[in-house]
Computed example of a mutant assay.
Amino acid sequence: MRSGKSKRVSGTGSGSRKGSGRGRRPGKTAGTSHHAAYNAGVAEGTSLNQSGGGRLSGHEAKLQMNERWTRRCMAKGASAGTAGKRIQESRAFAAGFAAALGQPDSAWQPVQLTRSAAAVVFAGPDANPASIRQLLRLPLEEIIVVQEGASEAQFAELKALPEIKILNPGEPLGADVWRAVGARVTRADIVLFADAAQLIEAEKLAQLLGAVQAGADVALVSYASRLGPFREWDDLMRVRAFVNWTLGRKELGVSSIGLLPHVWARSAMDAVGVKMLAVPPLAHVTAIQQRLRVQACPIAKRTANESGKSYQGLPPQASRKLTNESLQTVFGDHIEALRAAMKLKGARLAMPDNSRCRSAAGGAE
């Protein structure tokens, strides 16, 4: 494991071009705050350009933009969470900043961060490079792509993307082991875990990063508003909800560390143990038992992206279709996690029996 802060990886952006501050401004329907944010971004970008910032790579310029956005938010006393109107303001600021540096098509998505952030991404045979391009919009120090089972063409396509580091173990790692492998490579303070098979807009991922910046130890996606009737839940949804209920965290619903994407604080990963990340249900149970701040974030359902289109919420199923063998492994992992919890807290965990005095009968409390 490396020590020290994450090393910034220079990208191949067009940061060397000097801009005049002109670029695509917020539309006529944007609010006054959006125009103010855009103009503030132009001013900050112009200042950086005049001080030699025009020679920065696109990656470095993006991080510089985010530092200035963070300072602006803190000066205004804004919370670290990124949602709704704040997303639009941050995008306007980034657009103005990029225009001033001659990068009007950058589509950066700022996040209020005072700590370093990175992403660890699994890229299997069904990896979608477009999902990694969404990560490139975020102010991440580095993006670690753990590749397994990809073809030569897929590898070449991933390698052509800027700002990423590809880890190719050369042998099958087994389910979810990539999480621990990638977590050991980066020393960032905040780590986003994602699956390249999922195409998720940067705006959604920004909200998870913002939740950890604001104080959460683990930020999960909340599915409470789109679960549907219990009879329509699949088996994994029911198992995950049962685990949360037995641990006294009923409000988490079906949200789980087993589902991607989610975000960890480095301190929380160290407390649980990086090795534990290879068995997500066990990491989930351990995090709750250690009273870490595990938070299910209600991600905004509809937010305009850079193309003007909108997206809906994430499905509460697993990120990729599981085979019967894989399902058995996941169910077994949940049983293992519950057994570990019962060894520490007793057989009934957070479920008191109010109708029987089991201690008198010689059974579990």
Rank of each mutant, 00 (worst) to 15 (best):
Y38V: 12
Y38M: 12
N39E: 14
A43I: 03
A43D: 05
A43N: 13
A43K: 12
G45F: 07
S47L: 04
L48C: 11
L48R: 07
N49Q: 13
N49W: 13
Q50L: 15
S51C: 06
S51F: 00
G52M: 01
G52P: 03
G53M: 01
G54S: 07
R55E: 12
L56H: 07
L56I: 02
S57M: 05
G58M: 06
H59M: 00
E60L: 11
K62G: 10
K62W: 03
Q64K: 13
M65P: 02
M65C: 15
N66D: 10
E67M: 08
E67W: 05
E67N: 11
W69F: 12
W69V: 13
R71M: 08
R71K: 12
R72S: 14
R72K: 09
R72V: 02
C73P: 12
M74W: 10
A75H: 11
G77H: 04
A78R: 15
A78H: 07
A78D: 11
A78E: 12
G81D: 07
A83P: 00
K85T: 11
K85L: 08
I87Y: 03
I87C: 04
I87L: 14
E89N: 15
S90P: 08
S90Q: 11
R91Q: 12
R91E: 08
A92M: 06
A92P: 02
F93L: 05
F93C: 14
F93E: 06
A94Y: 07
A95H: 07
A95V: 02
G96C: 12
G96S: 10
G96A: 13
A98F: 05
A98L: 03
A100L: 09
L101Q: 01
S106F: 09
W108P: 11
Q109R: 02
Q109T: 14
P110C: 05
P110Q: 10
V111F: 07
Q112W: 00
T114N: 06
R115P: 03
S116L: 06
S116H: 02
S116R: 10
A118C: 13
A118M: 10
V121R: 06
F122K: 06
F122S: 15
F122I: 10
P125H: 02
P125E: 06
D126S: 14
D126N: 15
N128G: 00
N128H: 02
N128W: 00
P129G: 09
S131E: 09
S131F: 08
I132L: 15
R133Y: 04
Q134G: 03
Q134R: 12
L135F: 13
L135Y: 09
L136D: 08
L136V: 08
L136Y: 04
L136K: 03
R137Q: 15
R137V: 02
P139E: 06
P139C: 10
L140D: 03
E141S: 15
E142H: 05
I144K: 06
I144P: 02
V146N: 05
G149P: 02
S151K: 04
S151N: 09
E152A: 13
A153C: 01
A153V: 13
A156K: 12
A156H: 08
E157C: 05
E157G: 13
E157R: 12
L158F: 11
L158P: 10
K159I: 01
K159T: 09
K159M: 09
K159W: 08
K159D: 15
L161F: 08
L161P: 13
P162L: 02
P162R: 00
P162F: 03
E163P: 00
I164N: 04
K165F: 08
I166C: 01
